[in-house]
Design a binder for these strands. Sequence first.
DNA 1: CCCTCGTAGTGAAACCTTTCATCTACCTCG
DNA 2: CGAGGTAGATGAAAGGTTTCACTACGAGGG
Lengths: 323, 323
Amino acid sequence: MSLGTVSNVLNKPEIVAPKTRDRVLQAIEDLGFIRNEAARQLRAGRSRTIGLVVLDIGNPFFTDLALGVELAATDAGLSVVLCNSGESITREEHYLNLLQEQRSFGILITPVSNKLTRIDAIRRRGTRAVLVDRGSSGRRCSVSVDDITGGRLAAAHLLDNGHKRIAFVGGPMGLSQVSDRLDGARKAAAEAGLAEDRMIVLETPALNVAAGRHAGERIAAISKTRRPTAVFCANDLLALGVLQEMTRRRVNVPNELAIVGYDDIEFAAAAAVPLTSIRQPSSQLGDAATKLLIEEVTKPAEHTHRQVVFEPQLVVRDSTRPP
Amino acid sequence: MSLGTVSNVLNKPEIVAPKTRDRVLQAIEDLGFIRNEAARQLRAGRSRTIGLVVLDIGNPFFTDLALGVELAATDAGLSVVLCNSGESITREEHYLNLLQEQRSFGILITPVSNKLTRIDAIRRRGTRAVLVDRGSSGRRCSVSVDDITGGRLAAAHLLDNGHKRIAFVGGPMGLSQVSDRLDGARKAAAEAGLAEDRMIVLETPALNVAAGRHAGERIAAISKTRRPTAVFCANDLLALGVLQEMTRRRVNVPNELAIVGYDDIEFAAAAAVPLTSIRQPSSQLGDAATKLLIEEVTKPAEHTHRQVVFEPQLVVRDSTRPP
DNA sequence: CCCTCGTAGTGAAACCTTTCATCTACCTCG
DNA sequence: CGAGGTAGATGAAAGGTTTCACTACGAGGG
């Protein structure tokens, strides 16, 4: 029995005679043989695993996104390694090295930094990469949601409700998601004839609940006459943090402070005061990015870089609803 | 320049002369050499990646656990593949095959089924596995939280508050976490002299928010005189679902229905009515399991199977607090 | 001055799969 | 009955790393 035949049984069963095939399958069963993926990879020069690098695995937005990626990958016979950069450049770097050493099928990444030189270098070395939740110029593929529109929707909603002093909570500003959402909000303010400096910006070190609570403290510390009447948070985790802090201090939401979040995670609707938020098609984002990556890797000839942009959607709930 | 020397520079730099070492490192830099992990694995017979198989990556309990695993793994120079079985035996099976083909360093798994034959078979074939969030007999390593005590704590708390009609919401019963928590609750009821059949059991198909909402509908459908005055949910996602449904139907929590969750996820405290819950040391669970696995794999001689059990802790919040 | 020892580096084998050119045996048709 | 054709099986090479037995060389001791 030749090794080549065994390989054919496993990979192209149709070219081997049925009775030989059965004999081989029987032997595999009897011996408890399990093929060695490392050797396959070595031979193929590329693995069957997609690397997905996200900013924060504790953020349900990214787990939803990962779900979409996983589904699309499994459909194509690929698997997914989930890497959590935790918004740290060092950790992102670490994972990118790892994925290169593993000769990943390709990389889906929400980059920590604005500088994409590192990613371009990787692409030049042969590992394909698609940006997720982050736009790009024509030199790469990307799948994102229009964050400027999202920011504008959020701020316009608050302005429509008569708010004049609006705060933006988010950071670090190096994340384009954050700066784009702020830009959108500023645009809405300008369109409504509001002076630029009327928008207070509270920059946070991260996009999580703890940072939100801290921002909440800072807002509460502002004297009541100058305190903003509404905040727009760069994501729902921040918004939940701000909300928690307001509840603790008995600041009424939405009467004393209206809150808009971003992402519309499942828990936004279940919050102490159900959160108004900007919905993003998170799992579709993952699905589209995965398909783009697979196309780029498997059909490099006919592939042209594309920038898919989804539209965000305002979901109004009690946190901004005037009584 | 021999290949063996290059290998030594990368793996045991101290045994190669400094000037040769620098020459090699320079060449690596110039050529943009990236070592091939597949070849290393093939040679080593084992990969440097731990497989972590969880029930539901959308459940923050498991992302916290994964965080603990990732930290401990990174410390030991290992990486983690996160696999989401989604409580499906088929998908669990699929991932277990994948991890075996990849000759994983080892597997950390919260199994879907009570039957551990599959996992024992894998262990016999040489891939080590540690059970997470799930106890075990002495034949394997496991790291878990005492779910019987947890269930008892939850139910005892409700009984202390004077509740006589208590419902348990959770499922599928095949998950030992669910059945153990129910057993604990029943013990508490028995200790309080409550008849067995006074505990209504609503079995759910999964442990997520949607299943919780559905269970909420079923509870609300019970006539007010016979309706339970309190529910104990097998996890926080279910509890949030029940709570959402009650809010929608204007059933007051905790006055008309008290709710206890389980896991104490971050969002439990931020819920419409902050949830009483049973706290588990989720990331410690991951950390301990990873260390146990590493010991089992790297020091098989001196390793003896251990069953680490953590203690759960009751956290009281408004969802059970009498006004 | 020669022998021994130790350090630094070498080269080949092994890990397991896939691929492809080659070969065999059998069947068909003239 | 023989030539040609084909389906099916074979064997060797390649892929990159690590390991280990081995060599070469220089220094120090007798």
